[in-house]
């Protein structure tokens, strides 16, 4: 059949640019939405008290589990209660402005309102305990906290990041068992 050159012209002059433009805009938008920065990788907000993990976990070598009580037994690692802070800070560094604010809050029976750094969507039911018990270390997801003066998110915490590790944990987690994998079905995390 003879090609319809008029139609072809119309296709080249009109439809092709439109399709290309739509495709480009889509790619751009998708790229923007899924960029690591949108995942808040590198997010390090200013906290109400300039608490330093570098000092506590790094220099003083306090174990993570000393303050994050729930990490081995609960879904949540849990932010320490003011009472836990005060265990040491009744005596330690009582002259620092942050500790003074902490003490005042504790005296009122209140808690400090920390800016949240790591957050998964509400429909994700991540459980710390299973991961810790499987031998995944804190720094596998949270980075080398012991060197962080200000807490920063280092992983994208995206579903891709989760699945990457669930598929081949032994490659991503140094020193883990050779056959370690996580479940990949939906209800493992979403319910």
């Amino acid at each position: 059949m003879e090609p319809n050159w008029n139609r072809l012209d119309e296709h080249v002059k009109f439809y092709l640019p439109v399709v290309v433009a739509v495709a480009l805009v889509s790619i751009l938008i998708t790229g923007l939405i899924t960029a690591p920065v949108r995942r808040v990788k590198g997010y390090s907000p200013v906290q109400p008290v300039s608490f330093s993990h570098q000092l506590h976990a790094g220099q003083m070598r306090i174990d993570c589990r000393h303050c994050h009580l729930g990490v081995e037994v609960s879904r949540h690692a849990t932010v320490p209660t003011t009472a836990i802070c005060m265990n040491c800070h009744k005596a330690a560094a009582t002259d620092k402005p942050g500790v003074i604010r902490l003490r005042e809050a504790a005296a009122r029976g209140e808690t400090l309102l920390w800016k949240r750094v790591h957050k998964l969507p509400d429909f994700v039911y991540f459980a710390h305990l299973v991961h810790v018990q499987a031998g995944i270390r804190c720094d596998n997801c949270h980075g080398d906290v012991r060197r962080m003066d200000v807490m920063t998110q280092v992983s994208t915490l995206s579903m891709g990041a989760c699945l990457g590790c669930h598929r081949q944990a032994h490659e991503r987690v140094p020193g883990s068992q050779a056959n370690l994998t996580g479940p990949e079905n939906c209800s493992a995390c979403h319910r």
Partner: peptide, 18 residues
């Protein structure tokens, strides 16, 4: 991501999320 408020104190053996 908003704020995160821990408890001021917890009863013995009480772990949030359990």
């Amino acid at each position: 991501r908003g704020t995160i408020a821990g408890s001021a104190a917890l009863a013995e053996g009480d772990i949030p999320g359990t």
